[in-house]
Simulated scan of single mutants.
Amino acid sequence: MTPLVHAEQAVLGAIFLKPGQLDQLSPWLRPEHFSRPAHTAIYAAMLKLKADGHPATATTAGAPVPLAWLTDTLREASMRTRGLTASHLHTLVSACPRPDHAPVYGRMVLEGAIHRSVAKHAARLHQAALDDGRAGTVEETLHHAQVLADVLADLARGWGAEARSVEPPVAYAPRAERPQPVGEQVLADEEFLLGCLASRPEQLLGLVRWLRPGDFSDPGHQQIYRALGALHHRGEPIDQLTVLWEVQRRGSLADGTLDAERVRRVCDPLVGLAAEHFGEQVVQASLVRTAALAAQQVGALASRDALAPGQLIGYALHALGPLDEVRHRLRLAHEAEPEPQRPASRPGAPPPAARIDAARARSRLAATSAPSTAVTTSCAALPDRHNHRSPS
């Protein structure tokens, strides 16, 4: 028998011995906080009798408790569940170490209820994320994520704690969980999105506020999106070769994350569709994956009996932080108005002089604060690269 079951027996036994303690317990201890149906029925019966003005609940300290309190509770509880006997109630009485400690025993019961409630709603969120992942939707995930957040806030109020995010210590830090399986449609949407951006880079302006590299499920797609963003941010041309070169500079070819053929295929210039739709699909899939991971982490925290309710609630809210961030960006994606598109550069048009200077500056060696005479003389002997013209 677990300590929690002992605590449930003790608080019920204490109420049988001193019914007046219901005045201290009834404002915050509810029948659903008990883990066993029989205990739930007995406590609900006690509250019903108290509400009906049973004489035993008005018994003063030291006065004998009438036998009717036991028999009436048994009769009322038997209407809510089956199998209760008088001997069962006597077992509860004998399980109470100290009747005066009923509020402490009740607090133990409430702690167990908080852990169970968090675990239950985390499991529901995880299942909703799995279902939405297969269906390509996000509605159930968003609903259960909000329910879990509301439950945590309600539990914090019931416990008397502040509902705020608290980063857990290393001992309670969430462990890396196995990622949710990614469907072929998600990978196809990511490739289409990258192809759209490679063909029409000006569309990045409308996506960078709410689309992040981490939203892509495939590591290779993350690196291509980073390369596209870097090239666009620097104002450099974007095509299959420039993206491939940027990916290579970032080490993604060397570590095997990508290969040249795959980069060229993803950045197919024939793809010219609007990117907003595929961007929203990618963020939606990211939200579902993030929700599944957060639900696993919250469930793992709820299984730790050593965590006090205030700690559990704070750590659980911290685990939901990344999900809130993705949910916020998804709202931005739905609310965003199309950005005005820049006119595309004419094929074959020379790049602006400022772009040429910027590209060359990144390749120049930084000048030292006090160059030596030998270096100065050597540099002076070289032709001015800006005035040099290659033969036609």
Rank of each mutant, 00 (worst) to 15 (best):
R389H: 13
C196I: 02
A254V: 13
L47S: 01
A63H: 07
A198V: 06
H328E: 15
H33G: 00
R331W: 11
Q21W: 03
A359T: 05
D189N: 15
P19R: 01
A163C: 08
Q296P: 11
S345L: 09
P174N: 05
A171H: 06
Y315G: 01
R327L: 09
S303G: 12
E261Y: 03
P352V: 02
S94T: 15
L148H: 00
L241A: 15
I224V: 08
S252C: 10
H328Y: 10
A123T: 08
D218C: 04
M46E: 00
D255Q: 01
G321M: 00
I356Y: 02
A295W: 07
R389M: 10
A254K: 10
G235M: 09
S94M: 13
R327G: 12
V375T: 11
A123I: 05
A149M: 11
H6G: 15
P347L: 05
A366P: 08
A198N: 05
Q248E: 11
A316C: 09
L204V: 02
P3F: 11
G83M: 06
L193S: 04
Q223G: 11
R82W: 12
R164D: 00
T57Y: 13
Q240R: 15
L47W: 00
S217R: 10
F278V: 03
D357I: 07
S94Q: 13
A123M: 04
A171E: 13
V166W: 03
W159Y: 14
F16W: 04
L70A: 06
S369E: 14
D150N: 15
T71I: 09
L84Y: 04
M108N: 09
D150H: 12
A254C: 02
L270D: 14
R327P: 03
L312I: 11
D100H: 12
G62D: 11
I356V: 13
P309W: 06
H328D: 14
E32M: 12
V166Y: 02
L317R: 14
W159D: 15
P237K: 01
D215H: 15
R249K: 07
V186P: 05
G272L: 08
L194M: 12
A95I: 08
H386A: 05
C96R: 10
E8T: 09
S363F: 05
L25E: 00
V375E: 10
L293F: 05
L204A: 03
T40R: 07
L70W: 04
S345K: 12
L244M: 08
L110K: 13
R234W: 04
E162V: 08
T2L: 03
W210V: 01
A61G: 08
E140N: 15
R75F: 05
L84G: 04
A58W: 07
Q24T: 13
Q297R: 14
S369T: 11
E261D: 13
V151M: 09
V109M: 00
V208I: 14
A113L: 00
D52S: 10
Q240D: 13
A41W: 01
R262K: 11
T137L: 12
P347S: 02
W159N: 14
L307D: 01
R234D: 13
E140P: 01
L17D: 03
S303A: 14
C196A: 14
